[in-house]
């Protein structure tokens, strides 16, 4: 009995050490298995990207940084793979200096990876500037930029991150305004969705795909329901489900490793909650009220 009661007061440092272990093991093993379940909003994302017209671009808005790289980067890479496979051109823009650097590196990484496959199959290789572009870091009033790029894309974006005018890049040469934007993807760890909804996608009827961190996903369901969002990838799990759809199901990726680490961590936490409650119930029965410190 004493042992069970003690279960409701395990020292938090023990909990911390255990969670660190539980999370790191799958990351080191790196399992390749992807989940079979694909949530409808992930499927909708896939269909939305598929439906982008050939002469339209997809705009990727990057507002994540080093802190949430583990969540947002896999989402972006999976989407990039899909667009490369479809020959859909895309433009990446960033609201943070760090995000600008990281997203460019990831884009190059995916491009190299896809090119490896393509050269094996004898297909034409992907090129930066022709198949995609990165306009770098944007600063200033978000609402002004967002509404401005719908009106005059070239004037707001001007040049890519290397200083090449967008009129000289094959990917962006013909982009004039919102009519040429087939979809917007908001890859984010902060609340920028409202700006896209208020100033570009809702007024101009452009599909908006939301790729938030898992934390922000629960609040997005009203917007999915109203159609203001056309799809969502929920954190790294959204990314891993998307990877299943784009033919990465058997490849060991960061996302698949993370998904198993998360599985382990979730089970660990549920176990803890069960143990804590067991202790609590036993303590309550025996009249020991040492748990809980609620006021009033």
């Amino acid at each position: 009995m004493r042992f069970l009661i003690r279960l409701q007061n395990i020292d938090r440092r023990i909990l911390y050490v255990l969670v660190a272990i539980v999370l790191s093991v799958p990351l080191i093993i790196r399992p390749a298995k992807h989940p079979e379940t694909v949530f409808p909003e992930v499927r909708k994302t896939y269909d939305t990207i598929d439906a982008v017209k050939p002469d339209n671009i997809v705009l990727l808005s990057v507002s994540w940084g080093a802190g949430t790289q583990a969540e947002n980067d896999p989402q972006m890479q999976a989407l990039m793979r899909h667009m490369f496979a479809n020959n859909t051109k895309f433009v990446v823009m960033s609201w943070s200096l760090v995000g600008s650097e990281l997203s460019y590196q990831s884009g190059m990484h995916v491009q190299a990876d896809v090119n490896k496959q393509r050269s094996r199959e004898g297909k034409p290789l992907l090129e930066y500037g022709k198949d995609w572009a990165h306009v770098g870091y944007k600063t200033g009033s978000i609402s002004a930029i967002v509404s401005g790029l719908g009106e005059n894309f070239q004037q707001v974006m001007k040049q890519d991150r290397n200083g090449t005018p967008l009129t000289e890049l094959a990917a962006t040469r013909n982009i004039k305004n919102y009519r040429d934007i087939g979809a917007v993807v908001d890859l984010t760890s902060v609340g920028l969705m409202g700006y896209w909804i208020a100033y570009l996608t809702t007024p101009k009827h452009i599909p908006l795909i939301y790729c938030p961190t898992a934390v922000m996903s629960a609040t997005a369901y009203p917007y999915l329901d109203s159609g203001q969002l056309s799809g969502m990838l929920n954190g790294v799990m959204g990314a891993v489900q998307y990877e299943t759809l784009v033919g990465q199901a058997d490849v060991a990726t960061d996302a698949s490793a993370s998904s198993w680490a998360l599985s382990a961590a979730h089970i660990y936490i549920i176990l803890l909650i069960v143990l804590g409650n067991l202790g609590y119930l036993v303590a309550r029965k025996t009249g020991d009220r040492s748990g809980g410190s609620k006021l009033g």
């Binding site: 990351l27 961190t213 934390v215 790294v236 993370s258 680490a261 961590a265």
Partner: peptide, 11 residues
């Protein structure tokens, strides 16, 4: 939903 996101930070 958040537990997942927070764990990913440590990942």
């Amino acid at each position: 939903a958040t537990v997942m996101g927070r764990m990913t930070l440590f990942i």
